[in-house]
Simulated assay, not measured.
Amino acid sequence: MSTTTQPQRRGRRSVFWAGIALVLAGLAILGYVAWEFYGTTYVSKQHQQDATSRIEKAWGSGQTEVSTEFGSAQALIEIPRFGKDYRIPVLAGTSDRALGAGFGHFDGTAAPGEVGNFALAGHRITHGEPLRDLPKLRQGDKIRVLTREKTYVYALISDGDDLTVPFTSIWVTDPLPDNPERGGVEPVQQKGQRLITLTTCAELFHTDNRMIAFGKLVSEEPTT
């Protein structure tokens, strides 16, 4: 055997195993992407259903405060434009755990039906994606917020895709959101209003911008 044959074979083996490593790395990346886009949504939808079922059972037995493994549950959200089966739980706070099972209620903002701003966050893609279709909402569309005793009906005062802001724009969760951009989208600047704010990612893929929709309370009725 020539002295040059062995180094050539070792070189081929190195190339072969390097190729195998690249293929495995590629499969791992594809698996991660598939999990993020499909796996997390499947799991989160199960969590949403579990939390919703627990809330409904607790209300049926007379409980107002409902504890779940995803956090304290406060309400259920129905958006008729998203279909008659759309019912998503609202959980206290905006932790990953809360947002992975429904809407997160920003700490320090108003409760359902209260004067001020009932501000909610929800994923637009992955993790159940409750606000994937936010851009389809139009001014006047209804958002029904169910609590044990009352259902609060809000009507949007802006289209779902009318306002996009940086994630640092915390004014959108203020009791009376006041857009610093003159002439920008905002609620009527009148104190004492009962508002709702929906926030989600502005793009389907990673973005630091947020899409915002505002609504105001138009009616309330007993929860049946």
Rank of each mutant, 00 (worst) to 15 (best):
residue 2 S to Y: 06
residue 3 T to I: 09
residue 4 T to V: 13
residue 4 T to P: 04
residue 4 T to G: 06
residue 11 G to R: 15
residue 12 R to S: 10
residue 13 R to V: 13
residue 13 R to T: 15
residue 15 V to H: 08
residue 15 V to T: 14
residue 20 I to P: 09
residue 24 L to K: 13
residue 25 A to F: 09
residue 31 G to K: 05
residue 33 V to L: 11
residue 34 A to M: 13
residue 35 W to D: 06
residue 36 E to L: 15
residue 37 F to L: 09
residue 41 T to Q: 11
residue 41 T to M: 08
residue 42 Y to W: 15
residue 44 S to V: 06
residue 45 K to G: 00
residue 46 Q to A: 13
residue 47 H to I: 01
residue 48 Q to V: 01
residue 54 R to I: 11
residue 54 R to G: 10
residue 56 E to Y: 06
residue 57 K to Q: 13
residue 58 A to F: 02
residue 58 A to H: 06
residue 58 A to S: 14
residue 59 W to Y: 15
residue 66 V to R: 02
residue 71 G to H: 05
residue 71 G to K: 00
residue 71 G to I: 03
residue 73 A to S: 15
residue 75 A to F: 01
residue 76 L to Y: 04
residue 77 I to A: 03
residue 78 E to W: 04
residue 80 P to F: 12
residue 80 P to D: 00
residue 85 D to Q: 15
residue 90 V to I: 13
residue 93 G to N: 08
residue 104 G to A: 09
residue 110 A to V: 05
residue 110 A to G: 11
residue 113 G to N: 12
residue 114 E to H: 07
residue 115 V to K: 15
residue 117 N to E: 07
residue 122 G to C: 09
residue 122 G to K: 04
residue 125 I to Y: 03
residue 126 T to K: 07
residue 128 G to K: 05
residue 131 L to W: 05
residue 134 L to D: 02
residue 134 L to F: 04
residue 135 P to F: 04
residue 137 L to A: 00
residue 137 L to V: 04
residue 139 Q to V: 12
residue 143 I to Q: 00
residue 143 I to G: 00
residue 150 K to I: 07
residue 152 Y to D: 07
residue 153 V to G: 10
residue 153 V to L: 08
residue 154 Y to G: 08
residue 159 D to K: 06
residue 159 D to R: 05
residue 162 D to A: 12
residue 162 D to S: 06
residue 163 L to S: 01
residue 165 V to I: 12
residue 167 F to K: 10
residue 168 T to C: 03
residue 169 S to T: 00
residue 171 W to R: 10
residue 173 T to S: 14
residue 175 P to N: 04
residue 178 D to R: 14
residue 179 N to W: 10
residue 182 R to Y: 13
residue 187 P to H: 02
residue 188 V to R: 14
residue 191 K to V: 08
residue 193 Q to P: 05
residue 195 L to F: 00
residue 196 I to W: 00
residue 196 I to T: 02
residue 197 T to S: 10
residue 197 T to W: 10
residue 199 T to S: 12
residue 201 C to T: 01
residue 202 A to T: 11
residue 203 E to A: 02
residue 204 L to D: 15
residue 210 R to K: 03
residue 214 F to V: 03
residue 215 G to C: 12
residue 215 G to K: 08
residue 216 K to F: 06
residue 217 L to Y: 07
residue 219 S to E: 14
